[in-house]
Simulated scan of single mutants.
Amino acid sequence: MYVCSCFGITEKQVRAHAETGACTPRQIAGACKAGTDCGSCVRRIQAILGRGACPRRELLDQGEPAAALAADVVLPADTGLAAEAA
Rank of each mutant, 00 (worst) to 15 (best):
C32W: 04
L81K: 06
A86T: 04
R43I: 09
A16M: 11
G80S: 11
E11A: 06
A53K: 15
A22W: 06
A85Q: 02
G80Q: 10
V42Q: 01
T36G: 09
A22Y: 07
I48L: 14
G63Y: 13
L49D: 00
K33C: 08
G30S: 01
R56W: 03
V73H: 02
E19R: 14
V74D: 01
A34I: 08
G52M: 05
Q46G: 13
I9Y: 08
E64K: 15
C23E: 07
T24W: 00
G30A: 07
R57Y: 07
A47G: 06
Q62I: 00
R56I: 10
C23Y: 11
V73I: 07
E84W: 13
G80E: 08
A68P: 02
A67F: 06
A85F: 07
D78Y: 08
E64G: 01
R15M: 12
L81N: 04
I9G: 07
V3W: 10
I45F: 08
T20Y: 00
I48K: 02
G63K: 06
E19I: 04
P65E: 05
A77E: 12
T20G: 02
A31R: 02
V42C: 03
A77L: 09
D78S: 10
P55F: 10
A67D: 15
A85T: 03
R15W: 11
L75T: 03
L69Y: 11
L59S: 14
A66G: 00
P25M: 13
Q13G: 05
K12Q: 10
A83C: 08
P25R: 02
C32Q: 00
E58T: 13
K12S: 09
V14H: 02
A66K: 02
L60C: 05
A31Q: 03
R44V: 14
A47Q: 12
L69Q: 13
L69K: 12
D72R: 14
G50S: 13
K12G: 10
D72K: 14
A68Q: 15
I28D: 05
K33I: 03
I28Y: 06
L49E: 01
D61W: 09
A22M: 14
G50C: 12
Q62Y: 04
D61N: 14
T24M: 01
A77P: 04
G35I: 11
E11W: 02
E84H: 11
T10P: 09
E64H: 15
R57S: 12
G80I: 08
Q13S: 11
A16L: 14
I9K: 03
R15H: 11
L69N: 07
G30L: 08
R15Q: 15
A82R: 15
C41R: 02
Q62M: 09
T36N: 10
I9C: 12
V42R: 07
G21F: 04
V3N: 12
A71R: 12
C23Q: 12
T20C: 00
A31C: 06
L75Q: 04
C23A: 11
G63F: 05
E84D: 14
K33G: 04
I48V: 09
G35Q: 05
A70F: 11
T20I: 00
L75N: 00
R26C: 01
